[in-house]
Design a binder for these strands. Structure first.
Lengths: 141, 141
DNA sequence: GCTTGACCTAGAGCCGACTCTAGGGCCTAG
DNA sequence: CTAGGCCCTAGAGTCGGCTCTAGGTCAAGC
């Protein structure tokens, strides 16, 4: 599979694929054809797909590289892989917690503004926000 | 309140506070004392606290600035504020969805490795993963 | 009168993660 | 035999979001 095809399949750009390889993010070094062009295997694509999931969940490239190296070393270091994965699991759950808390505040603010906008505008304005409106003021006082 | 005190209370660095002001992230321009030093009000701190929540949930600075400007303009643009907030709400829920999907995969991989490690190691190894182990291989085949 | 410490401005530097450029190779079709 | 398309490398540039530096002001304490 050529780099262009892999770019299409993974959603990563050609630039990014080369960049990842340079950063040591590929489990086995990519094969080359006679002309020196990259030839990707199905496994490479699978691995890259995993990497995009890890990236999408905020794992930094150094951590992915570390995990990649463990996998490259082969069996015997599963404990270490677990450590990396658990660390990331924690990072993601923490981030989801933060997001969820933020979302509460954002939702609350939306309700407040909906209530403000609702007064005078057509539509249902029967369900008041659960707390008194304290939307943002430019000049409080 | 001095910039140092605000830094302590918000968790933002002094540098960042000045940077945010420069970026137009403060609803009302910060007051200065006779010596030209920033004097923050309680409202400023509240606003900054809101901003940290928005930042923590991934709202980009330009969007925060936009929202800030709407608030600065005063009453009358609540619909626009709602648009900004709803947009961000969507962004956050989308991100949480992505994280949740990623977390599923990460959790699955952790279970797989726990199963691998469990064989031969002391401890409970009675609950097998729900799918056959297909942990990462360095050299598949 | 000198030091210390908190603050000021303008602007440079840094970091992570890409993203793009310059300059070139190789193959195929017209 | 040349144009187009896809690929190559090395390295520079970009972007968002800080973070820090240089050089200076001001007030309090010794």
């Amino acid at each position: 599979m050529s780099i262009g095809q892999v770019a299409d399949r993974t959603g990563l750009s050609i630039h990014t694929l080369r960049f990842y390889e340079h950063e040591g993010i590929l489990a086995n070094p990519v094969h080359r054809d006679l002309g020196g062009r990259r030839v990707y295997s199905e496994d490479d694509v699978e691995w890259l797909t995993l990497c995009t999931v890890l990236r999408a969940s905020g794992m930094p490239l150094p951590a992915i590289r570390q995990y990649t190296e463990l996998v490259r070393q082969g069996a015997g270091n599963e404990e270490q892989r677990l450590t990396v994965l658990r660390h990331h699991h924690e990072r993601v759950t923490a981030q989801m917690g933060r997001l969820s808390k933020s979302l509460d505040l954002i939702s609350y603010k939306i309700r407040v503004y909906e209530d403000i906008v609702g007064h005078g505008a057509p539509g249902d304005r029967c369900n008041a926000p659960s707390r008194p409106p304290d939307a943002d003021r430019a000049d409080p006082g």
